[in-house]
């Protein structure tokens, strides 16, 4: 089998702790060949570890003929430009870390770039690919069709605790909320809340969207310090409670639960960064429970899928239009939550 060349843009924590180990887990099929990062110290070191080339400039990776798949692991605000450039270059596939973009306009731009170029764009919301979640999801009867109550609870320790178990990181891990106390003006609070939705809630929101398709209203929202949120969304019939807090000094807990009139879905995800297998998912009805757990994590399953898509063996499980719809859903919630904060303080 021909190896598929992978170019990675951004050599920080996500690349080192998640993507390089996940690529290694898939054996010879995918080969990191070129890594870009403007930070030479980090970029060169990370590239050398996998015998890949290093460039300071992302465009050098995109222009590299040996690169079939571009993985975009740079800071959020450059994702849209880099996805667009990779599509323009006619790559076989793009894997873009979450969030795909941070504005509606950028989301539209990405959808157009992917459609016009025919380059598949896949978003790194790994829980969407988690094999236990996927199995439980397909066992759930009538997704999006009934009254439902969802509870998403994400309680995480400092990112360093997980990245240090996943890699010997070159450079430092940034943990949201671990820095100095931020400015507490209403505008800063609203912006921090928006960022926490697009940074953390974004993992569960595509899953929630399959249960509550939207449009949804933000019924109440609060920012949690150091980092997190407490938000209720709903469409009149269906309700979701979203809570998150980090960095705590305790074991991680990442759950998604949903109830309708006859089913209960419970998914316990492992924390980010580590390749700790799939979630533990269970579906309970009046007739008892079924549960799923697999050896492979959502990160590995996602990369396997990206490889299949790049090799023309599969079309994306989540089309770019679906991914953009997921993003619009998340942006609407992030904006709605930010508005709630501003209205409360005005």
């Amino acid at each position: 089998m021909n190896r598929i060349g992978v170019g990675i843009i951004g050599a920080g924590a996500a690349t080192q702790a998640i993507h390089l180990p996940a690529l290694a887990a898939l054996g010879d099929r995918l080969q990191p060949v070129h890594i870009a990062d403007p930070d030479q110290g980090v970029g060169e070191q990370v590239a050398a570890r996998v015998r890949a080339r290093w460039s300071a400039d992302a465009q050098a990776v995109i222009d590299d003929q040996a690169v079939d798949i571009v993985a975009i692991c740079s800071p959020d605000w450059v994702h849209a430009d880099q996805v667009e450039a990779a599509c323009r270059a006619g790559k076989k596939a793009v894997l873009c870390e979450k969030p795909l973009a941070k504005t509606e306009a950028d989301a539209t731009r990405i959808a157009e770039a992917s459609t016009n170029s025919g380059v598949p764009v896949i978003v790194g919301t790994m829980h969407r690919y988690d094999p236990a979640f996927v199995a439980a999801r397909s066992a759930w009867q009538g997704f999006g069709s009934r009254r439902v109550f969802v509870r998403s609870a994400i309680y995480l320790p400092d990112n360093n605790e997980m990245t240090s178990l996943a890699t010997n990181q070159a450079g430092s891990t940034i943990t949201p909320g671990a820095g100095p106390a931020p400015d507490e003006t209403p505008e800063a609070t609203a912006e921090a809340l928006r960022n926490s939705v697009l940074g953390l809630a974004i993992h569960n929101l595509p899953l929630i969207r399959t249960l509550i398709p939207g449009p949804v209203d933000v019924l109440e929202a609060r920012l949690m310090r150091p980092y997190g949120y407490s938000i209720t969304i709903g469409d009149g019939l269906r309700i979701a409670r979203l809570a998150a807090l980090m960095p705590g000094r305790w074991d991680p807990s990442w759950t998604l639960e949903a109830w309708d009139d006859r089913q209960h879905l419970e998914v316990r995800f492992p924390p980010s960064y580590v390749l700790a297998g799939s979630s533990a998912a269970a579906l309970t009805t009046q007739n008892g429970s079924r549960s799923w757990r697999f050896r492979e994590s959502g990160y590995e399953t996602q990369w396997r899928h990206v490889a299949d898509v790049a090799a023309g063996q599969a079309s994306p499980d989540v089309s770019v239009h679906e991914a953009v719809a997921d993003l619009r859903y998340a942006i609407a919630i992030a904006d709605g939550a930010a508005r709630t904060v501003l209205e409360r303080t005005s």
Binding site: F149, L245, P247, G248, R249, G288
Partner: peptide
């Protein structure tokens, strides 16, 4: 931030869940 909610479901496994979350505990 206190949130108290309830939902009706015939799925079985009824009961109450409570998360109390602070940074140390």
């Amino acid at each position: 931030a206190v949130s108290m909610s309830a939902t009706v479901s015939g799925a079985g496994d009824h009961g109450g869940r409570v998360d109390l979350v602070g940074i140390p505990t």
